[in-house]
C-alpha cells in the first residue's frame, strides 16, 4: 500500500516529536518538544521524569503537527512510530499512543527503527538526494555506525562503535571541562578559537575491523591531559582542548567513512544524526569527500537531531513494502549485532 498521509511519532530519547508527511515527500507539519532543559536542570536524565514529560507532551505535539498540516486525524492513512532503539520508558509512550490512536481510528501502524530513520533523513526536503548505493554514517549521542545503504530498506551494517558513541564522548569531555550538557554545541563553539594541533589525541583505527569505531581511549586521553594540567596547577586551555579533541573525532569519522566508500565502491556518502550538525564535521567531510571524488550529503540542520519527519518517511517506505506491525508489538532498547 502506498499511503498518502503518514503521521510520524518519535519518543526514543529527549524529544517528543510528531510530523505529517504527504506522498513520502512533503512535510506538511513537524513539531518537536525537547526535554533537554529539564534534564540539564537536574544535572542528568531522570527516566521517570522523561517518561512523564513524553506522556504530557505527546497529545499536544501530535495535535500541533496535524494543525500545522491543516488536517484532522481522519485524514491520516498510516501511523509510523519509533519502536527502538532508545530508552524503553520513553519509547513505550510513543508506541502506546500510536497503537491506541491507530486502533481507535482503524489506521495502519508501522514500527520504525530509529537508526534507519536517521539514515533516510537525508532525503527530507532534498532536491538532490544521494543515489543508491551509498555509505551512510549515523553519528549521535547514542550511535556511531556505518551502513551500506542499497535502497530505502536494504541496509547493511558495516561497523559501529565498540564502546562510546561519538556524541557521548562530546558529552563526557564537556563534563571533564566543566561545560554544560549537551557537550556537542558548546565544545564546537569553543573549538572555533582553539588550536587543533596543541594536543595530539589518539585516533583508534582498528585495522582488523576498519568500519568499527572506538572513542573510549580518546575520552580517557583527554581526561588524563586535563587532570594532569590541573594537578600541576596549570590553567587548562579549554579552547585548545576542545579544538584538538573535536579534530580527533572528526578526523576518524571522515577517515573511516571515506575508507568504507572506497571499499564498497560507492560514489556517495551521507552523514546523519545529532553530531552531523557539527559545523567542523560538515565542512571537513565535504572537503575531503570532494578530494576523493565523492558526493557528500548531509540532512538539513533541523533533521539531524531527533525528529518525526524522518520516522514518517521511513514508515512510508516500509508500508510501501507492506511492512506494518500489530497491536502486540513491543519496543526494543538496542539493535541486534
Amino acid at each position: 500500500m502506498e499511503p498518502r498521509i503518514v503521521l510520524g511519532i518519535e519518543t526514543s530519547c529527549d524529544e517528543t516529536a510528531a510530523a505529517v508527511l504527504e506522498n513520502g515527500k512533503d512535510i506538511l507539519g513537524s513539531v518537536i518538544a525537547s526535554q533537554i532543559d529539564i534534564h540539564s536542570e537536574y544535572g542528568g536524565i531522570v527516566p521517570e521524569i522523561a517518561s512523564r514529560k513524553h506522556v504530557e507532551a505527546i497529545h499536544p505535539v501530535v495535535q500541533s503537527a496535524l494543525a500545522e498540516a491543516d488536517l484532522g486525524f481522519h485524514d491520516v492513512d498510516a501511523v509510523a512510530v519509533t519502536q527502538g532503539p532508545g530508552l524503553v520508558g520513553s519509547l513505550v509512550v510513543g508506541l502506546s499512543f500510536a497503537k491506541a490512536a491507530a486502533l481507535a481510528a482503524g489506521k495502519v501502524l508501522i514500527g520504525v527503527n530509529h537508526v534507519q530513520a536517521h539514515l533516510l533523513s537525508v532525503f527530507l526536503e532534498n532536491a538532490a538526494p544521494p543515489e543508491f548505493p551509498f555509505v551512510g554514517l549515523v553519528v549521535s549521542g547514542g550511535h556511531t555506525s556505518l551502513y551500506l545503504v542499497r535502497s530505502f530498506l536494504n541496509i547493511e551494517l558495516l561497523g559501529q562503535t565498540r564502546d562510546d558513541a561519538a556524541g557521548e564522548a562530546f558529552d563526557k569531555v564537556a563534563k571533564v571541562l566543566g561545560l554544560p550538557y549537551p557537550g556537542g554545541p558548546v565544545i564546537s563553539k569553543l573549538a572555533e578559537n582553539g588550536d587543533i594541533r596543541r594536543f595530539k589525541f589518539p585516533r583508534a583505527r582498528l585495522p582488523e575491523t576498519p568500519c568499527d569505531f572506538s572513542f573510549s581511549g580518546l575520552k580517557t586521553a583527554v581526561m588524563q591531559q586535563v587532570r594532569n594540567m590541573e594537578h600541576k596547577g596549570q590553567i587548562v586551555p579549554v579552547e585548545d582542548v576542545c579544538a584538538s579533541f573535536q579534530e580527533a573525532v572528526v578526523d576518524i569519522l571522515i577517515e573511516k567513512t571515506l575508507a568504507a566508500a572506497a571499499e564498497y565502491g560507492v560514489s556517495c556518502i551521507a552523514v546523519s544524526g545529532g553530531v552531523a550538525s557539527n559545523m567542523c564535521l560538515r565542512r571537513d567531510m565535504l572537503n575531503r569527500a570532494q578530494e576523493s571524488g565523492l558526493k557528500c550529503h548531509f540532512p538539513k540542520q533541523e533533521f539531524c537531531t531527533d525528529n518525526a519527519a524522518m520516522v514518517a518517511l521511513a514508515g512510508y517506505h516500509l508500508l510501501k513494502e507492506g511492512m506494518s506491525i500489530g497491536p502486540d508489538a513491543d519496543v526494543y532498547s538496542r539493535l541486534p549485532l
Binding site: 530508552l87 547514542g142 559501529q160 565498540r162 538496542r334
Partner: peptide, 14 residues
Amino acid sequence: EREVTSPTFSIIHE
C-alpha cells in the same frame, strides 16, 4: 565482546 558497549545512553544493556 562486540555486544558490550557503553550503556551510558540507553542506561541498561542486556
